[in-house]
């Protein structure tokens, strides 16, 4: 094949790829795909995986202080699920030709991001309720929409994750509901958590559609199926009703039902805070990465031992 024909072949492959995606066919790991598609997926899936893994920390902060056997059991199972989800997603990203070692390195050097929400601290037990209810509630809205994403392994991971996550949002809501029926101190704690987690949860959907840098390719390739604002609205509509039922106040004086659109209108999100935290100046950015590095480095000799044992066994068996 002469070099001159290469771009023509690539063009043909590209249009075949785009047609197939438009038809709604899934893309599988060994199929030809444009480099930009691959890069976009690697960025998005690994960021998603890192979010699950880093997300274990703020909740893990309360495992040893969980106030009942049942609460401890549920919280531990939930955090474990998040680890599992991180793992499914790392595996999905690995099918695109990046190793888990590389992804971890990108996380630890700051090259890869994770969800901003986990840079906020969990200060009271009610924060565990708020995370389950609001943060997982927001995540699930996003993830349900990703079940039909065009990349097969990502879509399959999302189907599994959504199935497993369905209890997470409920357990958070249950914690909040129980506290709101409890003592005045508990109600105060719940409202305080609501006040601190509401706005960061809305930020989880990312910038307004008009300011979203990676969106157009992602839509064309059906990686992303719904816009940031669409998903955010869906989340708000569902959550406001749940808050009212248990007597929590949404900390947004401008929030009101809009008859014309059939959705809630909300006050402006503090984007300055959003970008400040993304840029590394949230309360816990450094702490979360330091924790991850410590566990990773503390485990290095264990992984090395497992490798060494494998090699010794292989020699023995030959």
């Amino acid at each position: 094949m002469s070099i001159n024909t290469a771009p023509a072949i690539d063009d043909a492959r590209l249009s075949k790829f785009e047609e197939s995606v438009q038809r709604g066919d899934a893309v599988e790991p060994r199929d030809w795909m444009p480099e930009a598609y691959r890069r976009h997926l690697i960025r998005q899936i690994s960021q998603h995986a890192h979010s699950e893994v880093i997300g274990m920390q703020p909740e893990g902060n309360w495992i040893t202080r969980a106030p009942s056997i049942r609460a401890k059991q549920i919280l531990l199972a939930k955090i474990q699920d998040e680890g599992g989800h991180g793992l499914y997603l790392y595996s999905a990203a690995e099918t695109l030709g990046i190793s888990r070692e590389e992804m971890i390195e990108q996380l630890q050097t700051g090259k890869a991001k994770y969800s901003n929400i986990f840079n906020y601290p969990t200060l009271t037990w009610a924060d565990i309720g708020a995370i389950g209810w609001l943060v997982d509630g927001a995540a699930i809205v996003n993830q349900v929409s990703l079940q039909r994403t065009s990349y097969g392994p990502y879509s399959r991971a999302m189907v599994r994750i959504c199935k497993e996550e369905s209890f997470h949002q409920r357990q958070g809501y249950e914690i909040m509901a129980t506290m709101m029926k409890g003592t005045p101190e508990q109600r105060e704690m719940a409202q305080d958590a609501m006040n601190r987690w509401w706005w960061p949860s809305l930020m989880m959907f990312g910038p307004h559609d008009s300011d979203s840098p990676h969106s157009s390719d992602a839509f064309r390739w059906k990686i992303k199926r719904h816009s940031n604002d669409e998903l955010r609205t869906k989340f708000i509509d569902k959550t406001v009703q749940q808050a009212e039922v248990i007597g929590l106040t949404i900390p947004d004086p401008e929030l009101k039902w809009n008859e014309a659109t059939g959705h809630y209108d909300h006050g402006e999100i503090n984007w300055e805070e959003f970008y400040r935290v993304i840029q590394g100046n949230g309360q816990c950015n450094k702490q979360r990465i330091a924790h991850h590095k410590k566990a990773h480095n503390d485990g290095a000799w264990v992984r090395a031992a497992a490798e060494a044992y494998k090699v010794k066994q292989a020699v023995k068996n030959n």
Partner: peptide
């Protein structure tokens, strides 16, 4: 430290 390993993929 030697290059990290995350063990083999199965």
């Amino acid at each position: 430290m030697a290059t990290d390993t995350q063990l083999d993929l199965w």
